[in-house]
């Protein structure tokens, strides 16, 4: 027996009435982006969800001893394996439904991980799960460093950033490498759906989640998630900063559906990258006169990436005609 689930209407008034599935009482820092991302993902749908969680801020702060902020079945096992763990849960569901031991209730399987657990140590596990074609969605909340262990550099850390393992020193001024472009790498797995989202553009994010849940197979969603501790920004700036990330094209909002790329939110006016960098203490040293080259290099990289995206979107628009 399969249960049908009614789609959720994405209107603030309706959403406000819904029951939260990730609730208050968790111990995330004030102003953290991650719980906002989780709430938006869970709020976007009426489907029953089972989630796995990589070790990290979200995990250590949301389930401590006998307390849990999760109103859905949730499992944490280790750092590098949220994708493999949820793939096991999904396999058991599939097996029991197939054998008639369990009703098919249209359960959706989601893995949550930070950028460390996704881009770096969990990359193999994620890549494997995507290739195997599990019916699951991986959601990365990308705050651009190992924030849980105290702001260490990850492969998602942006160029120039000052972290505790790539500090802005006298000889080496912060991180000198560009970010790994994980969303494109996941799209290159040939999965049916990969997208980037931002909590500032909640409607865009929720639409992506809704769309992803209607697609059978592996899905990947990369969401920017400001961390005021690591970004050295104001406590109440998470949404403003994630909006600036979108408006400067540092964090473009796009989706790759069956290979075809579409930019879902285009800034009316592309703002200079410095507007995103300036409010964050982690980039402060880049504004020193001797580090002007860093600002230039960071801007050039964002421009090149954005141009590339536009070209690719144009290709797919043309191809669809």
């Amino acid at each position: 027996m399969t249960t049908t689930v009614q789609p959720k209407e994405l209107k603030l008034k309706e959403l406000a009435k819904g029951e939260d599935r990730f609730v208050h009482g968790h111990r995330m820092c004030a102003g953290c982006g991650a719980p906002i991302v989780v709430k938006q993902v869970l709020m976007a749908t009426n489907y029953p969800i089972i989630a796995s969680n990589a070790t990290g801020c979200l995990e250590v702060s949301s389930c401590i001893q006998q307390f849990t902020a999760w109103k859905i079945p949730w499992i944490h096992s280790a750092f590098e394996n949220a994708a493999a763990t949820i793939s096991g849960v999904e396999a058991m569901y599939k097996s029991l439904v197939k054998q008639g031991k369990l009703d098919d209730r249209n359960v959706k399987f989601v893995a949550f991980g930070g950028d460390g657990g996704t881009y770096d140590i969990g990359f193999q596990s994620l890549s494997g799960a995507m290739e195997r074609g599990h019916d699951m969605m991986y959601v990365c909340y990308d705050n651009g460093a190992y924030m849980n262990t105290g702001i260490q550099r990850s492969s998602a850390t942006p160029f120039g950033a000052n972290t505790t393992t790539c500090p802005a020193g006298d000889a080496i001024p912060g991180k000198l490498q560009q970010r790994k472009d994980l969303t494109r790498i996941m799209a290159a797995h040939g999965i049916p759906y990969a997208a980037q989202a931002s909590p500032s553009n909640w409607l865009d994010l929720m639409k992506k989640v809704q769309k992803a849940f209607e697609i059978k197979g592996p899905k990947f969603l990369n969401v920017i998630s400001p961390c005021n501790r690591g970004w050295r920004s104001k406590t109440d700036d998470a949404i403003a900063l994630s909006r600036l990330a979108v408006e400067t094209c540092y964090w473009p909002l796009y989706e790759v559906e069956n290979g075809a790329l579409k930019i879902t939110v285009k800034p009316k006016e592309k703002k200079p990258l410095t507007e995103f960098l300036k409010p964050q203490g982690r980039f402060k040293h880049m504004f020193a006169p001797e580090n002007e080259w860093m600002l230039k290099q960071a801007q050039e990289y964002v421009d090149a990436q954005w141009e590339h995206l536009l070209k690719e979107e144009a290709f797919w628009t043309e191809a669809k005609k």
């Binding site: 029953p48 089972i50 969680n53 995990e59 250590v60 389930c63 401590i64 001893q65 006998q66 849990t68 999760w70 109103k71 859905i72 079945p73 949730w74 499992i75 944490h76 096992s77 849960v89 058991m92 569901y93 029991l96 369990l102 209730r105 359960v107």
Partner: peptide, 14 residues
């Protein structure tokens, strides 16, 4: 975990 009506959290921090 598949008991959706009685959700459980696995793997807490202790």
């Amino acid at each position: 975990l598949l008991d959706l009506d009685n959700p459980k959290s696995y793997g807490p921090l202790i």
